[in-house]
Design a protein around this nucleic acid. Structure first.
Lengths: 159, 159
DNA sequence: ACAACAAGGTTGAAGTTTCAAGCATTCCGG
DNA sequence: CCGGAATGCTTGAAACTTCAACCTTGTTGT
């Protein structure tokens, strides 16, 4: 391990800027959705994914992977959303170990009401001031990083 | 506000890629530092910032802003780290309402031990596979987003 | 001086996330 | 067809974060 050195200037600048964004983006989206719809950004994503699914229904596992969450986290959150009457859970007819979640009308309504504000927020917080070129650069960069992150899950990072 | 439309294809690609990164980066760093040093990435940052400060000492407020945290969050965490003997808190001699945190030798030791692994992780997770140009692009892009995010804190995003 | 207000911090409760364990169901090799 | 392993999901406890309330100390305006 010859590379125990810290980052060079360019990298450090990028690192600090990135951390600044990562640390603020979540909370910023959270507080916007919270204000507009009384729920978490994560709750919102769950409803949004269901609304785009066929029958507005997905198995827990599929839903979990779409919202980048652990099954455990999702299970807790879905329980909460079910209590609010926004989602319904039932054992799948086709396989007795899967649970299907369906977006209820009440959930769809609240989603529809929250959506415009959320879109505006994403535009303002993320894309405002970026050129079209930068948007494409961002895609490339983030995709590379995403691949790095996925790799490390497997090769537990030890080297 | 005529723009209640969702994102176009380029933007959507960037958005998904970005969310994928944002959602994985924190946990990935967390689990690395957890494994190597039995603490959170956030704990690590606190120790790291103190280690770079003059006298290895900072006021709570300064420390909070360096690690991008609320004072409340920091207070809870510092209490925990103090219990572990890594940090010491004392009222400032110069102003009776500020509390100073100092990194203790034990804290420094644990930090030194964790640092190389952390640096390796950041390199592998973030910079691996990026060209030098992309690193600079990233800085520009993230800085713009950071500015957007900071603005929105003030103008509460209502339009 | 004095009242109001801002700044620096802490705390407890409530909400969220993670962690480890557990249960039932399905798949697979022999 | 049997036993083991993997899959899908839930749960309770522990850890963490946020939120609102509160205390104390400085500051400001009058």
């Amino acid at each position: 391990m010859a590379d125990a050195l810290w980052l060079d200037d360019d990298e450090m600048a990028a690192w600090l800027a990135l951390v600044g964004v990562v640390v603020r983006l979540g909370p910023a989206l959270d507080s916007q959705v919270q204000r507009d719809a009384g729920m978490t950004h994560f709750d919102y994503q769950v409803l949004a994914m269901l609304s785009e699914a066929p029958e507005r229904t997905l198995a827990m596992s599929e839903l979990a992977s779409k919202v980048n969450a652990s099954l455990s986290r999702l299970s807790h959150v879905v329980k909460k959303l079910e209590l609010r009457g926004w989602i319904h859970r039932r054992p799948s007819p086709t396989s007795r170990r899967v649970t299907e979640c369906t977006l209820m009308p009440a959930g769809h309504d609240v989603l529809v009401e929250a959506a415009p504000g959320h879109v505006r927020a994403v535009r303002q917080l993320v894309f405002d001031g970026l050129t079209r070129e930068q948007v494409q650069q961002l895609t490339a960069i983030a995709s590379t990083m995403r691949a790095n992150l996925d790799d490390s899950d497997l090769r537990t990072l030890d080297g």
